[in-house]
Amino acid sequence: MSSDRQKPPAGSPACGYTDYTEGATPEAFPKTGEGATGIERAVWDALYAVDDPEMPVSVVDLGLIYNVFVEPIDTTDRSQNAPSNRAVIEMTLTYSGCPARELLTNDVKCAAETVPEIADAEIRLRYSPPWNVNMVTDDGRTALRKFGLSV
């Protein structure tokens, strides 16, 4: 894994994401963890290790990860050494009938929970903006080409 993360792929659609509050700014999807630091960085690194079930390409390079949030959790009842954060991961699927949905979301959850500071990870599936092949990163394209796909 390279520590120098690439930018979101060129030509990937920017979603005019609106939460219907003032000052909403458009967000570009997918995310690649570029610029992430600390625990969030560690979660991204863990997600880079999860491959798509069909192809040897990471779910991040495939463009499936839309957001990673890390938030502290209440640890008053726990021992001092227990991990004290939870991760929320927003991700999508390449198509809605994906039969590996549970397998894949479970792999992502388990990967995030390998980060020592993370006690628990929650996966939220989202379908907007719809995934398309432009969301694959340059590294992802290289991996897919090596696998024999023309992208």
């Binding site: 198509y95 809605s96 989202r126 379908y127 907007s128 903006p129 719809p130 995934w131």
Partner: peptide, 10 residues
Amino acid sequence: ADRIEKVLLE
């Protein structure tokens, strides 16, 4: 609403 575009594409 968020899911419609994906389904329409398919």
